[in-house]
């Protein structure tokens, strides 16, 4: 490539220190901004405006004026209950996902080459399954342990155990289903963190007389803790904003916040529902934003370590 010939040139501004260079530099900057206009215009239309619509809608009353009355509906027992359920499901599935995922990532790293077949296979599968939410995931669990599921029938024929057909739409069923995409997500997110642990640290601990317990409590855990917590928060946000899986499982009951939003959107013409979807959506954004901000702060502190 002819480009290679010129690679020895020092990088940097090529413009000389003449009067025209100022104009040229300005034209360059204008050109840069000009190229970015379509990107910012697009994101304004389809990201910023929808967000503004949600926020404005949350503060708009039925008469079109400013109001805080919509927020009163957040205090209704129904809404509080669905926020409670959403947060419970998200926390428990994030705990299961992060603990199991962290153990699995650690198992993938110990005693294996960094580009071993097993490890590459598991991380490729994980990146597929972490995206595997929604209708297809609901089908997978209905096929496993639904009324006519393969697992349900096997359990009945082999052990005579009857699985409650409604278990899938119970809280514990939902948690298990959510764990199905949380564990793979944790594996993808946490593998690089476990990778950063060097075997030399363990050897150093040992040659200084530390035992396994001391190694874990004094060396490995303090290093991994911030990354683990920020991964946990990511998993929480992931479960909290998940809609499609639950929507495919429960057609009627609005036990989670996203399902409540769906109901409010469907009944938008009802004057009593005015602004309710927007208030719920606004509250969701606030929760996710707080979680993401926390995760960002913790990650920054962890960055100081490296």
């Amino acid at each position: 490539m002819s480009v290679a010939l010129a690679q020895g040139r020092p990088a940097g501004k090529t413009a000389g220190p003449s009067a025209t260079s100022f104009v040229a530099a300005h034209r360059k900057e204008l050109g840069t901004v000009g190229v970015t206009v379509p990107f910012f215009a697009y994101t304004t239309c389809f990201l910023l405006v929808p967000t503004i619509i949600v926020v404005v809608g949350a503060f708009t009353g039925a008469d079109g004026g400013f109001t805080l009355a919509n927020f009163a509906r957040l205090a209704e027992p129904n809404t509080i209950a669905s926020f409670g359920t959403s947060i419970t499901v998200s926390i428990i599935s994030a705990v299961i996902g992060s603990v199991v995922g962290a153990l699995a990532s650690y198992s993938l790293v110990i005693g294996a080459k960094p580009d071993g077949l097993l490890r590459r296979m598991v991380s490729a599968i994980s990146s597929v399954l972490a995206q595997f939410g929604g209708v297809m995931l609901a089908f997978a669990f209905i096929a496993t342990i639904g009324i006519n599921g393969v697992g349900t029938m096997l359990l009945q024929q082999l052990f005579g155990v009857t699985v409650d057909p409604n278990w899938l739409s119970s809280l514990s069923g939902l948690i298990v289903i959510y764990s199905y995409f949380q564990i793979p997500l944790m594996i993808i997110v946490f593998l690089p963190a476990v990778d950063s642990i060097r075997t030399e640290w363990r050897e150093a601990t040992e040659s200084l007389g530390g035992n396994t317990f001391q190694y874990w409590t004094r060396v490995a855990c303090p290093i991994l803790a911030p990354r683990f917590i920020s991964a946990f928060l990511l998993l929480f946000a992931n479960a909290f904003s998940a809609y499609a899986t639950a929507a495919a499982l429960f057609s009627q009951r609005a036990i989670l916040v996203p399902l409540m939003i769906q109901g409010a959107m469907r009944n938008e013409m009802d004057p009593n529902q005015q602004g309710f979807a927007q208030v719920l959506a606004f509250a969701m954004v606030v929760v996710v934003a707080i979680v993401m901000l926390l995760s960002h702060i913790i990650e920054k502190r962890a960055g100081r370590w490296q």
């Binding site: 909290f240 996203p258 939003i261 769906q262 959506a281």
Partner: peptide, 19 residues
């Protein structure tokens, strides 16, 4: 570009509906 990770799709839909 990474903002959509913080705004759940279900929230985006509420705003996208009128558009």
């Amino acid at each position: 570009a990474t903002l959509p990770l913080t705004i759940p799709a279900i929230v985006l839909v509420v705003g996208l509906g009128p558009i």
